[in-house]
Design a protein around this nucleic acid. Sequence first.
DNA 1: TAAGATTGATGGTTCAATCTTC
DNA 2: GAAGATTGAACCATCAATCTTA
Lengths: 141, 141
Amino acid sequence: MRVVTSIMRVQQLLLTRIDGLLKPFGLTFARYEVLVLLSFSRVGALPLSTIGERLQVHPTSVTNAIDRLESAGLVTRTPDDTDRRRTLAVLTDQGRATLAKATGAVTAQQFFLDGLTDDDADALYRMLRGLRFSCGDLAAD
Amino acid sequence: MRVVTSIMRVQQLLLTRIDGLLKPFGLTFARYEVLVLLSFSRVGALPLSTIGERLQVHPTSVTNAIDRLESAGLVTRTPDDTDRRRTLAVLTDQGRATLAKATGAVTAQQFFLDGLTDDDADALYRMLRGLRFSCGDLAAD
DNA sequence: TAAGATTGATGGTTCAATCTTC
DNA sequence: GAAGATTGAACCATCAATCTTA
């Protein structure tokens, strides 16, 4: 049970820390993840439903994130002609540029340097992945 | 970086799962933690500021949680005579009873049985604790 | 009927500002 | 002035209900 509360605390600490790093770019971690996902899709465009599946979040969260990214000019909404129920989120040039800068700021920080070695980080990742599976998370990074 | 996103996912999965277990008792994990903390204090009463420090959350979160716990009749607010700036949250008999039932429901679940051994869980806890320290969390459970 | 997206509601967190009391 | 608690605002997450389209 103490493991559970520890995960909650660490998540909170990491989130506020990362959000602080992303704030100068007008981003939060949630929106940053969307940009990263779009940049991985080499077309730079993805249906909102796909974004929700990959990030394991509710459709409402995707709509909210895209709303704000669109307001900031980092993403545009485009109808999908093959299936007109779908809406595509398209990464703009400005979105790609700010993503590059934001990634630089995030990766410049070393969150684990003080406490963990590379081997420990790897072991930690594998245990967390095991937890995700046992909680019913089918998506593996 | 994948460790960070994994922590976020696991936290989300665990939270929705635990919240689901606590819902029949009219509780959430945040409010459950407050009740647990109060029950540990053998007087069953704690200043709101102390609750915030122990749980590492903002004063606003404590006010919010106590508001709802008080509405449910699980806690009462009492002024502190020694320092009248402070407000004491007092665990009621009903609060103690629902806490007992809720704890039974939570501990009946084994979140890690599928994926982790006891040794792994212990190693996981120690690594998470290391992360907390390197993030500036001085409170150790 | 079902899938994709949106809106409105609720609960959680934080911050900024305020009010009372030390 | 500083500490403790509260209020109002902002953001992120969920669910329930709705609307359009397959």
